[in-house]
Design a protein around this nucleic acid. Structure first.
Lengths: 314, 314
DNA sequence: GTCGATTAGTTGACAAGGTCAACTAATGGG
DNA sequence: CCCATTAGTTGACCTTGTCAACTAATCGAC
């Protein structure tokens, strides 16, 4: 029965401690649902009704996993209080179409207001930076605990802001070391690239895109002026975090670069990459790049094959 | 009633969503407490008894916030099952000293094992990197939601690893921009400093310390060889995150530097800082540095006063 | 069409978890 | 010594939620 990996132990311990503490926290939070006459289950039913034009009891009990009998009584209470109206369904005369009434909506508004105020009271003392950190942490926990597949739609591209270059170096450094066992001279290279980028940054001819998912930095790419040739752009530091793989993010980032380069008047884009980064090659190929040269070299503590890819812009 | 800051709204929304989801998660998690014959409350009482040699009912109900009558019944059940023994207290013959029995401990072990297994089942598919991220995220959430004062004891100093330099740049870049309104040329400078550090790193004469609190990077400092003078060390990039202020971390980091410099045979340590960083000055002063020179300069988008501090090592 | 299986919703019975107040017995301060 | 207080127990009761039996409508197969 050697089911549990012992190296997981510290994580398990903090996870359990967190769960204990959060159980207590949510207990007081949901205590007599925000000091109203509603139970948590009732609140959830009302919320469900408020977010749909019309529902049947069946659908509610399915979604919320409530016992049919229990739900029936909750709905009876709501009907009596005038919070929902109930008409026999046209299609199926066993079922009843439930709709929230004007009063029902008023109650939901009150509940929402209270819940918002309650949440704010915990969060109001946070600085803007802490707020971002907090959102990021919540989404990280959710993703792992609920095994949530992140939605591609929730990824936002934006330009760089202070602090971003550091994250770029961090992700590149930690990522390639973990995945390919490179040493930290690679991190040094990344740091130098971003330092150069910031210092010589020409907003008309150069750009950096940061991909964020729920405020978390999950990818990036740079397009910069080639140091020697004025009509050539260089694509650098393309990165997609493991948390956001398989969502076409790499392609999206490269496409942004190509489009920008075209608009900026470049005639050619070039990039340098490594032979082992096959996932990236597919992206470059799909975007229209072609492999021009390969040369072996020893860098980052490994024997690697450097590749130069190019793309002519029409 | 304009109590709530509107810019907090997105954070509040994700916080509430998280709470809803976590309520459900903990509900299934604690459902009939791990499929044993114990309720969650019973489990907590037993846990409390297992972690203390001897307790009185009063203490338990205080700590766990349980109703006295309810607790009494829970304890009656435990006594009947032989999980706790109960002797009238010597000091106060109203009260009873409760102790967990051998059988009781066996039950706790079983519960713990199950809880561990359950937690592992959520976490086992994580990579080492994700595990660290997860621990970090949990501790960030805890700190904000439970307003936990971090314990100075929980801060660990270690040397740099891959990914750390990026975090250094990130924290410096985001931190000084947020606090003092500097522009991102400062981040560029930080990136260049860490790139130089990694490339020329001499482990005998140079060092970087990373301060971690619950796996989160909350501070750092560098001690490097002075570029011109062989007998002089340079202290660079001292940083203490707002989350770890007031715990003497800055002092601890500087002291580490001084001690290392002494052991490495340096005769002098020098550092360059800015006039507005008064909190840091106190630390340097306390460590034995003296302000040598000041000169105004325009950098990072601001008018600043550069300061050179030095310390002779005996 | 019609018959049996299925489904929507309701209802009664009941169990688990938890609260409240009254009670006993011991303590402790004036 | 007396009265207010405290530790713990117990009975009454409430809320939440489950289960199974029930009615009424529907659906599919023949």
């Amino acid at each position: 029965m050697a089911t549990t990996d012992p190296s997981l132990a510290p994580t398990v311990a903090s996870f359990r401690q967190f769960n204990r503490a959060y159980t207590r926290f949510l207990g007081t939070l949901n205590d007599r649902y925000l000091h109203t006459d509603f139970s948590l289950a009732e609140g959830r039913v009302l919320y469900e009704l408020a977010t749909h034009r019309s529902l049947q009891a069946r659908e509610i009990s399915d979604v919320l996993g409530l016992d049919g009998g229990y739900l029936s009584r909750i709905l009876a209470k709501f009907k009596k209080a005038g919070l929902v109206s109930c008409t026999r369904s046209k299609d199926d005369r066993r079922a009843a179409d439930l709709r929230i009434t004007r009063q029902g909506r008023a109650v939901v508004r009150t509940l929402n207001l209270r819940a918002d105020k309650q949440a704010s009271s915990v969060l109001e003392k946070l600085s803007a930076h802490q707020r971002r950190e907090f959102s990021r942490a919540l989404s990280a926990v959710e993703q792992i605990v609920f095994d949530r597949e992140p939605a591609a739609a929730s990824i936002v591209l934006r330009n760089h802001r202070p602090g971003d270059m550091g994250m770029v170096v961090h992700l590149e450094g930690a990522g390639y070391v973990e995945q390919f066992g490179w040493d930290n001279t690679f991190e040094a290279l990344a740091a130098r690239i971003v330092a150069d980028f910031l210092e010589k940054f020409d907003p008309v001819r150069e750009r950096c895109w940061i991909a964020e998912m729920d405020s978390r930095h999950v990818g990036h790419v740079f397009l910069v002026q080639h140091p020697e040739r004025h009509d050539t752009a260089k694509l650098r530091l393309l990165y997609v975090d493991p948390a956001a793989r398989g969502m076409g993010l790499g392609q999206k980032l490269v496409d942004e670069c190509v489009q920008f380069a075209r608009n900026a008047g470049y005639r050619k884009i070039t990039l340098w990459t490594q032979g082992i980064l096959t996932a990236a090659h597919r992206i470059y190929q799909a975007a229209g790049f072609r492999l021009m040269r390969e040369e072996p070299h020893h860098s980052f503590g490994k024997d690697l094959v450097g590749q130069t890819w190019e793309m002519e812009l029409v």
